[in-house]
């Protein structure tokens, strides 16, 4: 299972890099979102997938799943949600103001 998820992470990173390298602004933003989800999955795999029961004190449980990666992922998801939302608004506003969504044309933009 861990191997499968790791491969999935690899595929997601590939997709994200492809999107990030494209010229359209909206693709770059989507790419950054995919990229952060890839790393969230990776965080989960690094803690080991389900190895025992839920980390609550229990008489029958012999081993517990590590709860820390879940906590990390939750925090990271919230942050990436906020950043993606901000980036989408920023991209839209830039498009409204300049009429450009092409990263090549946005390069070295100095006009006031």
């Amino acid at each position: 299972m861990e191997t499968l998820i790791t491969i999935l992470v690899g595929i997601l990173v590939t997709v994200a890099v492809y999107l990030l390298l494209s010229r359209s602004l909206i693709r770059i933003i989507v790419g950054s979102a995919v990229l952060s989800h890839a790393v969230h999955l990776l965080l989960m795999v690094m803690g080991g997938l389900k190895k025992g029961s839920a980390p609550l004190l229990d008489e029958n449980a012999t081993s517990y799943t590590d709860p820390l990666p879940q906590a990390l992922i939750l925090t990271a998801i919230v942050i990436s949600f906020a950043v993606t939302a901000f980036l989408l608004v920023l991209g839209y506003r830039t498009y409204k103001e300049t009429g450009l969504d092409d990263s090549k044309e946005l390069r070295g933009f100095t006009d006031e």
């Binding site: 770059i28 950054s32 990229l35 952060s36 830039t94």
Partner: peptide, 22 residues
């Protein structure tokens, strides 16, 4: 306008570095 254009680069670069951090 110039602020918006520059900040897109700034934000994307920082998203990428945060990704490396994670």
């Amino acid at each position: 306008k110039v602020q918006l254009v520059e900040s897109i680069k700034y934000v994307v670069i920082n998203v990428l570095s945060s990704w490396f951090f994670l």
